[in-house]
Design a protein around this nucleic acid. Structure first.
Lengths: 195, 195
DNA sequence: GTAGACACTTACCATATGGTAAGTGTCTAC
DNA sequence: GTAGACACTTACCATATGGTAAGTGTCTAC
């Protein structure tokens, strides 16, 4: 694997984990066994590295979600497929969702970079749910809405691999059974579990 | 208000907002119109400041939750009162919940500082929900569990004051109606709304 | 066999950052 | 009126941090 690619992978994890301001180029380089100047050679500046990391992460998320859309039917099936794809990605690459939260904090101009890529899909999902609830297709205690709510909690809060694996395996359409552990895990995570 | 207290309030907001490593003593001092040395005089070191900020935030959270416990009945009423108190605090001092997320990232020894104070209450709440679901008292699509799930999402994700105000006002026991907007807001926030 | 691209390293540099040391002004106790 | 506590400021300092400049080794094309 090329040095450039290794830097991007390590920076994605470091930015998600310790934050952008908590990750120095020296520390990142030391992890990879190269010098800071090697990183600067490939990306020009720290801002250049951030740009590259966010661009690739957004592209990866988009590809995953679009694949889920392509293999699903319009309507609830599509929402569920999207959520399922997100869980799968969260298990495989938990740092991607952690990075989203960091972007949220960084604000402009970084948030625009990611939002530009993902916002069309978010708008579609929100519009579908909104019209579904306006028309009475979903009741407010619908298990499907619980699933969406849990999804929000997961993408926003939980990064623990074991929790996500449990959720991913148990949400195998058996929403009723799976949500029990999910909810408890979320509650624990939200109120701070020792990491 | 004493300088020391002003530093703690400003640091709480800064740490929650920009992160601990994203907040330099110089920048914090400049915000307050004092010198960095004034901060070091009061807290000894940056670690000293972090300790003080976390200790006070944890104490404030605890006081709020214990007051809610004291004025509620055992059982679901108590869980609801606790959640309600958290919402109220989140509206009044959103940085406190933001700080919890930062602590989660900082890890040891800072997480232990906060966890030590709050974990007895968390354990109680989790035990209650767990036994309630084991015994079949709650079904998995119970609106009350939706509320708890939403609470996890709120404490973990949402810091936008307007969203929290909307949630706080509409959760006035009319769970069914209130959750509609809440869920959509959470979904938007979790998938990154432009801040 | 040599010019040039490529992927680095070595040697620096300016600024930011946490921190120390030695003052200075002010208020209180005696 | 003066000793001492208190809340600061001014003057520094060592290290961390992002970044620049000038090499060095290696591989490819001709």
């Amino acid at each position: 694997m090329s040095t450039k690619h290794r830097v991007i992978l390590a920076a994605t994890i470091a930015f998600a984990d310790r934050g952008v301001s908590g990750t120095s180029l020296d520390a990142l380089a030391a992890e990879l066994g190269v010098t800071k100047q090697t990183i600067l050679y490939h990306f020009g500046s720290k801002d250049g590295l951030i740009t590259q990391v966010l661009t690739e992460a957004a592209a990866e998320l988009l590809a995953e979600l679009e694949a889920a859309i392509a293999r699903s039917q319009p309507g609830w099936d599509r929402v569920e497929a999207t959520i399922r794809a997100s869980f799968a990605l969260a298990i495989r690459r938990p740092e991607l969702l952690g990075l989203l939260r960091e972007v949220n904090r960084l604000g402009q101009p970084w948030s625009a970079l990611v939002l530009e890529v993902l916002s069309p899909l978010v708008e579609q999902a929100v519009a579908y749910l909104e019209s579904g609830m306006e028309s009475g297709q979903f009741r407010s205690n619908d298990p499907r809405l619980v699933l969406v709510s849990s999804y929000a909690a997961v993408t926003g809060v939980v990064t623990d691999a074991e929790v996500l694996r449990a959720v991913g395996l148990e949400l195998d359409l058996r929403v009723a059974a799976g949500l029990r552990r999910t909810l408890l895990s979320f509650l624990r995570a939200a109120l701070i579990e020792d990491p």
